[in-house]
Lab assay of single mutants.
Amino acid sequence: MDTYKLILNGKTLKGETTTEAVDAATAEKVFKHYANEHGVHGHWTYDPETKTFTSTE
């Protein structure tokens, strides 16, 4: 398992979190669920070199 990072740049919520996942697709599902639960619906990007997802509203 690898550690993946999420950076949230929402209108009402900003911050970072991490998750352990078997691959990027699994981490993306976890992070999108997390963002949706916190009302963040933004544009998603992923940097495979740093294993970092960013959601920007």
Rank of each mutant, 00 (worst) to 15 (best):
G15P: 04
M1E: 08
D23M: 02
T12N: 13
E49W: 10
L13F: 15
K29L: 11
A35G: 02
G10W: 14
V22L: 12
G10T: 09
P48Q: 08
F31H: 01
D2P: 07
Y46D: 00
Y4Q: 03
V30P: 00
K14G: 06
V40R: 02
P48C: 05
A21K: 00
E57N: 04
T19W: 08
Y34F: 11
G15D: 11
T26S: 13
V40C: 04
E16D: 05
E28H: 10
T50C: 04
Y4L: 03
I7T: 03
G10I: 05
G15Y: 15
T3H: 07
P48W: 06
A25I: 11
V40M: 08
K14M: 10
G10C: 10
K32E: 05
A35I: 07
T52F: 02
I7N: 03
E57L: 04
L6C: 10
D23H: 03
T56A: 07
Y4H: 04
A27H: 00
N36G: 08
G10D: 03
T52C: 03
K14N: 09
E37V: 13
I7D: 03
E57F: 06
F53I: 01
G42P: 05
W44H: 01
A24R: 10
E37M: 14
V40S: 04
K32I: 09
T3D: 05
A25T: 10
H33G: 09
K14L: 08
K11W: 09
A25H: 09
E20I: 14
K32R: 15
H38Q: 12
N9M: 12
K51S: 03
P48Y: 06
K51I: 01
T26C: 07
W44F: 11
T45M: 08
F53Y: 05
T12G: 09
V22S: 12
T52E: 04
L13C: 15
T50M: 05
F31M: 03
W44N: 01
L8T: 03
M1S: 09
E57I: 05
K51T: 01
Y4R: 03
A35W: 02
N9H: 10
E20Y: 11
L6Y: 03
E57W: 05
V30N: 06
K32G: 03
D23P: 01
V22K: 13
Y34E: 02
T54G: 02
A27M: 02
V40P: 02
T45F: 08
H38F: 12
F53N: 00
K29A: 12
T45R: 07
E49T: 11
Y34K: 02
G42M: 07
D47W: 04
V30M: 09
T52H: 01
N36Q: 14
S55D: 06
W44D: 01
Y34D: 01
D2I: 13
K11A: 12
A27I: 02
T18D: 04
K11P: 12
S55C: 15
F53Q: 00
N9E: 09
T19Q: 04
T54A: 06
T19F: 12
Y34Q: 02
T56C: 08
A21M: 02
E20K: 12
H33Y: 10
K32M: 11
T52Q: 03
L13M: 14
Y34P: 01
T26H: 13
D47F: 06
E37R: 09
L6P: 04
Y34A: 02
G39A: 06
T45N: 08
H43W: 13
K11C: 14
Y4K: 03
G42Q: 03
E49L: 12
V40T: 04
A24G: 03
T52L: 04
I7L: 06
T45S: 12
G39T: 03
T12L: 11
S55T: 15
V30H: 13
A25G: 08
M1Y: 12
T52V: 07
T17L: 15
T17A: 11
D2Y: 13
N36P: 02
A35M: 09
M1L: 14
K51M: 07
F53R: 00
V40W: 13
V22M: 12
K5S: 05
L13S: 09
A25S: 09
G15T: 15
N36V: 13
G15V: 15
E16A: 08
K32F: 08
Y34I: 08
D47E: 09
H41D: 13
P48M: 07
S55Q: 08
A27K: 02
K11R: 12
H33W: 11
L8Y: 10
V40H: 09
K14D: 05
D47V: 05
D47P: 00
D2E: 14
H33A: 15
A35T: 06
G39Q: 06
A27N: 00
G10A: 06
E57Q: 05
E16N: 07
A25D: 09
L8M: 10
V22Y: 12
L8K: 00
P48T: 07
H38T: 06
E28R: 06
N36T: 13
K5W: 09
T50W: 05
N9C: 15
I7V: 10
F31L: 08
L13G: 08
A35R: 01
G10V: 04
K29Y: 08
T52P: 00
A27F: 01
P48S: 10
T45Y: 08
Y34M: 05
F31K: 01
K29W: 07
E20N: 10
T54I: 08
H43G: 07
P48H: 08
G15S: 14
F31T: 00
H38G: 04
T52R: 02
E49F: 11
E49G: 11
I7W: 03
A21E: 03
A35F: 04
N36R: 13
L8I: 13
K5D: 04
E16V: 13
D2N: 14
F53M: 00
K14P: 05
T18S: 10
I7A: 03
F31I: 00
F31C: 01
M1I: 09
G42Y: 05
L13Q: 08
A27P: 01
T17I: 15
T26L: 05
V30R: 09
A21F: 03
T17R: 11
T17E: 05
T45I: 07
A25N: 08
E20P: 05
E49V: 10
T50D: 04
G42W: 14
T50H: 06
H43A: 13
E28A: 09
A21T: 04
T3E: 10
I7S: 03
N9Q: 09
H38V: 14
T52K: 02
W44A: 01
T3G: 03
L13R: 07
H43P: 06
G15W: 15
M1G: 09
I7G: 01
Y34W: 12
V22I: 13
P48F: 07
N36D: 12
P48K: 08
E20S: 10
W44K: 00
G10N: 04
S55P: 02
N36S: 13
W44V: 04
K14E: 06
T54L: 07
V30C: 07
T50F: 05
A24V: 11
T3W: 10
A24F: 14
K51A: 03
L13A: 09
K14T: 11
D23C: 04
V40I: 11
G39P: 00
G42I: 08
L13T: 11
I7M: 05
K5Q: 05
E16M: 12
A25V: 10
G10Q: 04
T18F: 13
E16L: 09
H33E: 15
I7K: 05
G39L: 05
K11D: 09
K32Q: 11
A35L: 12
T18Q: 09
T18Y: 14
H33D: 14
V22N: 09
L8S: 02
W44G: 00
V40G: 03
D2M: 12
T56M: 07
A35S: 04
T52S: 04
K11L: 15
E37G: 06
L8F: 11
T26E: 13
T54M: 10
D47T: 06
V30K: 09
T50Q: 06
G10K: 02
H43E: 15
T54V: 07
E57H: 05
T12Y: 14
N9R: 10
W44Q: 01
G39M: 06
A35C: 02
T26F: 06
F53T: 00
A25Y: 09
W44L: 09
A25W: 09
G42F: 06
E28M: 12
H43R: 12
K14V: 11
